[in-house]
Design a protein around this nucleic acid. Structure first.
Lengths: 221, 221
DNA sequence: GTTAATTTTTAGACTAGTCTAAAAAAAGTT
DNA sequence: AACTTTTTTTAGACTAGTCTAAAAATTAAC
């Protein structure tokens, strides 16, 4: 059983998530930005992780996770999302308060613990932000027919299904305007010049910048 | 708020527990043995912790925690015991399976989390091994009239109230012989030449070496 | 297809934590 | 009081992870 440091685990997780919305290899700079560190530090770490066969890496060519690397990443994401669910469902934390704590809890080493937690929570399919929770086997059950709010068209109706979880301030803002999972919305208008989207929610009119709209996913009705 | 590494926290916890059954300062060697490390490493760490005013240290004179150091140690012990309680009460782990996992969980940084966990568990007074759980304020409610089994006298009756938690094999052995918290026992005999204690438990006769007897505490009836 | 700009890697240094080996201090013994 | 043993500290080295500054490779621009 390959034992990883917290830092190595954080790199794997970052590479995995970057790979999800990018084609091909992940560049050193891209990763450095995500990890809030310097490119030189990233290079060092990539060499090490490549040595451990968790990713493929060639000088100046970026990196990509191997299957082993992917399953490690998925195991960490599984733990992160299960712990977030625990914190919200069992300890009554708000969805804006759990990310940082889960960033620590995701590194606890014990498959047995993870699986029992999963059971204790009733095998949840999604975390408090609507993100799917990978199963024991690392498979993510695809969350069907969701689109980003930024891709919605005027006149469409939908239900809020997921939001990005990594910015506390963003989630606090969503709390303030009363947006949560399950909230129904109507797409009222879209401003062509900056991409802003205007939605109707609980009878109120709310305007989202394109940046925000990209961080919210809905199920069209 | 002073932020400590896991290693620093582990040293504080070790010094605290060693200080509980020893008078005066803790020696470098004693601590090295407890931490499964070398005396030279301990010296380095003592210098650092002294610098941070978590303990008092003078060359060749051993160390002793300051009040700040003590409350840090108590906070870690509080987390350790609350997590053990969670693992046993909520996730159905055995008392012999939780120590190692709690050693990791005790380093999670969030007072809010600790306090909410405490509430979720119903403010338990003792952990699954009978060890008292320090409160929010760091106070340990004294567990009244307990004595070590090694100090019991022949003819005495008692109830098992606590056991040492840090050796998995020891706890597995207790499981095997059917000893758990609340089990009533009679002290049948004591062998003068090696200090062994013979007890009657559930109608069976069981012999404990002095080493084992020192790791079990009872409430005399 | 050179030159310029950008990206990435290397080189060398720093902190935290550990180690071994040797020196220094303290404690025990005669 | 001097010698021996034990304990503790120092000195120097190693790994993991990070950094800055400079070199090298790649990409973009003309």
């Amino acid at each position: 059983m390959l034992r990883l440091t917290q830092s190595e685990e954080n790199y794997l997780k970052a590479i995995f998530t970057l790979s999800q919305d990018a084609e091909g290899a992940i560049s050193t700079n891209e990763l450095a930005e995500k990890m809030l560190t310097k490119a030189s530090s990233v290079t060092d770490m990539l060499k090490k992780l490549c040595e451990k066969e968790l990713l493929e890496y060639q000088k100046y060519q970026g990196c990509a996770l191997t299957n082993t690397g992917k399953s490690h990443a998925l195991a960490i994401i599984r733990k992160h999302r299960l712990w977030e669910t625990f914190l919200v469902d069992k300890l009554s934390f708000g969805w804006d308060e759990v990310h940082e704590i889960a960033e620590q809890l995701e590194h606890i080493q014990s498959t047995e613990l993870t699986d029992r937690l999963d059971e204790f929570l009733g095998f949840p399919k999604v975390d408090p932000h609507g993100e799917p929770i990978p199963g024991k086997d690392g498979r993510i059950e695809s969350v069907s027919n969701r689109i980003l709010l930024s891709e919605a068209v005027v006149g469409m109706k939908g239900i809020i299904m997921g939001v990005e979880d990594d910015q506390t301030e963003f989630l606090q803002y969503l709390n303030k305007i009363g947006l949560h999972l399950g909230t129904p919305i109507d797409i009222v208008d879209k401003l062509s010049f900056d991409g802003s989207i205007i939605v109707n929610m609980d009878g109120r009119q709310i305007q989202f910048s394109i940046t925000i709209a990209k961080q919210i996913s809905i199920k069209p009705l």
